[in-house]
């Protein structure tokens, strides 16, 4: 069902990860992702896995939800694994058939890539699972504010992002409603070839666009009525302040950074 789409879905909670400053979380996620790609052998990758699991545990996001966020990339994972198994040069051949051969190095590389991607998705899902979209865009706005020097309207961009995120669930609900209304009139969305199915979308897309425009106009009016004049000089109700736990989180990620460097240096690189 259409309700199952989980783009940046926030899971309400009160874990330490939920309460971290959104700016800090965004920056740390960024570094976390960089560290994933710095891992050069299984020792450092192991540390990476340990930290990923640790953060997941701290966040108290159910494992089921985590697996659900991995489901869409399952195909990519398989694809990556297969390509790496067959297209890695060198290493000891384990077995082969036709023109393809499977080497130990190929298997290692494949495993390595798959684990990296899983860590990557888990890390970034943790950010969106524990941060409300509004807080996230707020954080991005703050982090991008140095760009004002280049005359980029960061405020406006952030407002656009906030609104876009805010309206995803609304529009999904609207789509659901329109689909039901057309199905009630006998619209057949499930059968037929590609062209027939594409055509069957017209009765859904047209009302959806009409309603999106209507909502946009209404929102613009409402915003103007409350004296919205674009970004410059707006203050906010919720001030963001760094706390001890934010520093703690930063130290944790820094420790991960150092650990990965040490293990990379201590043991030989695999790839």
């Amino acid at each position: 069902m259409i309700r199952d789409i989980t783009i940046g879905q926030y899971l309400p909670g009160n874990s330490v990860l939920h309460r971290l400053d959104a700016r800090m979380k965004a920056v740390l996620t960024f570094f976390f992702i960089i560290v994933i790609f710095l891992c050069k052998n299984f020792w450092s990758l192991g540390l990476m896995i340990a930290f990923t699991l640790l953060f997941t545990a701290i966040s108290k996001v159910p494992l089921r939800m985590m697996l659900k966020s991995l489901k869409p990339i399952f195909v990519i994972l398989i694809f990556t694994a297969v390509l790496n198994i067959f297209y890695t040069d060198g290493g000891r051949e384990l077995f082969g058939f036709w023109k393809l051969s499977v080497t130990d190095k190929g298997l290692y590389t494949a495993g390595f890539m798959v684990i990296r991607i899983i860590c990557l998705i888990t890390g970034s899902s943790l950010l969106t699972y524990t941060t409300t979209p509004t807080l996230l865009t707020d954080a991005i706005e703050r982090l991008l504010s140095p760009l004002k020097v280049f005359k980029i309207q960061v405020n406006t961009l952030a407002m656009m992002m906030t609104l876009a995120l805010r309206f995803i669930p609304t529009l999904i609900e609207e789509t659901d409603r329109i689909m039901n209304a057309q199905k009630a009139r006998g619209a057949d969305l499930e059968s037929g070839g590609f062209i027939k199915r594409a055509k069957a979308l017209i009765p859904i897309l047209i009302p959806l666009f009409v309603s999106a425009f209507r909502r946009a106009y209404e929102l613009a009016f409402a915003m103007e009525c409350r004296c919205y004049r674009g970004g410059e000089g707006r203050t906010r109700m919720k001030q963001m302040k760094l706390k001890a736990r934010d520093l703690g989180a930063a130290f944790l990620v820094a420790a991960l950074f150092c650990g990965v460097f040490f293990l990379n240096y201590r043991f030989k690189a695999l790839i």
Partner: peptide
């Protein structure tokens, strides 16, 4: 199921948003 769609005509709230 399909015949139920035609036997029972369902008109949703704010049905004007289904016009296309």
């Amino acid at each position: 199921v399909r015949s139920a769609r035609f036997k029972v005509g369902l008109c949703f709230q704010y049905p004007e948003y289904q016009l296309f």
